[in-house]
Computed example of a mutant assay.
Amino acid sequence: MVIPVHDVNPVRRTPWVTYALIAANVLVFLSMPGLADSVTGGGSLARLCRLQEFLDHYAAVPQELIHHRMPRLVPTGDVGLSPQGNAGCVVAPPGYDKSPELSVFTAMFLHGGWLHLLGNMLFLLIFGNNIEDRMGRVRFLLFYVVCGYLASYGFAVLNAGSSDPLIGASGAIAGVLGAYLVLYPKARIWVLVPFLIFLPLRLPAWLVLGFWFVLQAVYSSGEGVSDAGTVAYAAHIVGFVAGMAIAWPLKPGTPPPPEPRGLLFGRRARPRW
């Protein structure tokens, strides 16, 4: 796995939409109940029940997206005792109306922990600014939302029986990565490669993003990862392909990134005479 840290691809204007999306994701995450659990890995049962109620209310659920109906019982956020005397989260008929279509949008701003949030925001910061610069602010925002919706519904179609909440900006950001691969395949990306230590390398975007996509496909099949059931890798794949398809018409008019100079693969390149 490689960790991107910077791309050699300057923009012509400030990417305010990208910055606003990052700020919105961070602010929503900080307001989520159960935040302490994502930091310490623990927390009280009451806090966990409140988090579960919050996610069932605002996250996208594949069953609800496909069948367009809510379950008969949902968590209330309260703690109760079972007939056997075991403590657990209370469930009851829902006391609110939920729009499955709108839940896809709200779910894009929810994250399951700090690593989930920071990883997504790092990718959005590095690659989103150039896509916003190329598309323009309004079109980029629409593109981001459309990719998020396609990723969520694509995952729901492939997992129609799942009742697990689907959260995160990963599907929309995967669309950004797909668009970047189409528009700037030769742009250079500074990455950290873990090999005893983190080695800094400057690699072409087609290699970095192509490798990322292959990993998502492998993980989606359940190979090479233990949490394949908790991460929506299929949503990443759908979002990535959607981003490529939407960005393809813009490719002919996209200027190439500048030819990088100076450091190359962690050492200074020799000048050509």
Rank of each mutant, 00 (worst) to 15 (best):
V2M: 10
P4Y: 01
V8I: 08
N9M: 00
V11I: 12
T14E: 13
V17C: 04
T18E: 07
A24C: 15
A24K: 14
L27T: 09
L30P: 01
G34F: 05
L35V: 08
S44P: 02
L45R: 06
L45C: 06
R50M: 04
R50V: 01
E53V: 07
H57P: 08
Y58M: 01
A59W: 02
H68T: 11
R72E: 10
L73M: 15
G77V: 02
D78R: 09
G80T: 14
Q84I: 05
V91K: 09
V104C: 06
F105P: 05
A107H: 07
H116P: 09
L118K: 13
L122S: 07
L124Y: 01
Y144E: 09
V145F: 04
Y149P: 10
S152Q: 15
Y153P: 11
G154H: 05
G154K: 09
I167S: 13
A172T: 11
L181M: 12
Y184T: 08
L196A: 14
F198N: 06
P200A: 15
W206T: 10
G210R: 03
F211I: 11
F211V: 14
L215A: 00
Q216Y: 11
G222V: 10
E223T: 13
V225G: 04
S226L: 14
T230Y: 11
T230N: 15
V231T: 09
A232Y: 02
H236I: 01
I237R: 04
V238R: 12
V238Y: 14
F240N: 02
A247F: 05
A247D: 03
K251F: 03
P252D: 04
P257S: 02
